[in-house]
Amino acid sequence: MTRHMSESDSDRSPDAAGRSWHDMGGLPAGGINPAEHDFALWEKRVDALQVLCATKGLYTVDGLRRALEEMGPQAFESMTYYERWISAVTKNLLETGVFTTEELNARMEAVAARGATYGDASIEGASPEGET
């Protein structure tokens, strides 16, 4: 669960001026890539899970942001937006005690064993498509 977050604390700690990595306003940066993509179903579901968990009071949007910020700049550069979000959502749910690390790991193993694609790994009936 934490292997992607393993980087030095110095990357994630505020600098001497008290500035954290995510506080990037005003820093030098390159040209803006205007490329866009249509969100995949799994990305939309991550967004939906975040909104639902926050709406239901399991944690707040600040909890999401804290988890995202704790992941550090390496995750920002190497993971996509909703990859970071599902990681942060999961972290909050583990902290809240909605499920345990053991439960998550067991379920992820079971999901991975179902097939080689997202469609194959999604159970009809347990997934929203099953509810029509």
Partner: peptide, 19 residues
Amino acid sequence: NDGPLTHWQIMEIAVRELL
């Protein structure tokens, strides 16, 4: 759904099912 299943997609499915 037709690309190789990723670690983060697995996590999304697992978290959704657990919720």
